[in-house]
């Protein structure tokens, strides 16, 4: 029976491209020694410790343990977007403390994991010019969304956005964040999507949750 189970698991591993990558330990976000990627710190053992701390976290939710960036960002602008572009906040601010390249990956609260900042051209580097990236952190109200629709950006209703089973949605304050499209803890769709931590197997599937065709 055990061997049958083992064969079944092995079979899943073969036929399921993202097998195992739904655990953060098996993703490139694991910067500890056990991480599968090339960017990691041999001296660090704890998988969660690059982002989280159990105590003295800032912000307390989600127990954030990495030094935050104080950068000012160039944000997205489009004539077809009625929402006012804002500086990244919420979860996006947390992602950018590594991905804007201004803070060392190893600059953790209370310790230094001896891992430098992402550099321009390296995978995952976004820099501080986000004018080409999907806008984040603006609050979506129905009035704003109506205006967006009128301006040429098709938007689903708030209720419609909240109903996606894969978690493509706004945050608790109805803001778009990096985490609306990316799941930082699971890279199960990467083998198909080719985009790290993408919430769905296909690129467009994520877009179409909020932007109906």
């Amino acid at each position: 029976m055990k061997s049958l189970f083992g064969m079944a698991v092995l079979g899943l591993a073969v036929v399921s491209p993202g097998f195992g990558q739904d655990s953060v330990a098996n993703t490139v976000h694991n910067l500890a020694r056990s991480g599968p990627g090339t960017v990691k710190s041999p001296a660090v053992e704890d998988v969660c410790g690059f982002c989280h701390v159990p105590h003295t976290a800032s912000p307390a939710v989600p127990l954030w343990g990495h030094t935050l960036s104080s950068a000012t960002y160039t944000v997205y602008h489009s004539d077809s977007m009625a929402s006012t572009a804002v500086q990244p906040n919420g979860a996006s601010k947390l992602c950018l403390c590594c991905h804007d390249g201004t803070i060392a990956l190893g600059d953790l609260k209370g310790r230094n994991a001896a891992l430098g900042a992402l550099t321009k051209g390296s995978k995952g580097y976004l820099g501080t010019d986000l004018s080409g990236s999907h806008p984040v952190s603006m609050v979506l109200t129905q009035a704003v969304m109506d205006a967006d629709n009128a301006a040429g950006t098709p938007l689903q209703s708030l209720a419609g956005m909240a109903g996606d089973r894969d978690g493509v949605r706004l945050d608790t304050e109805n803001r778009v964040q990096c985490t609306s499209c990316h799941d930082p803890h699971s890279d199960k769709n990467y083998p198909i999507s080719g985009i790290h931590f993408w919430r769905k197997p296909k690129f467009s599937e994520v877009c179409l949750v909020c932007h109906p065709s």
Binding site: S133, K202, F203, C207, L208
Partner: peptide, 9 residues
């Protein structure tokens, strides 16, 4: 679809 023209970043 969207990916024909767009990328996230």
């Amino acid at each position: 679809q969207c990916e024909a023209c767009h990328v996230g970043h």
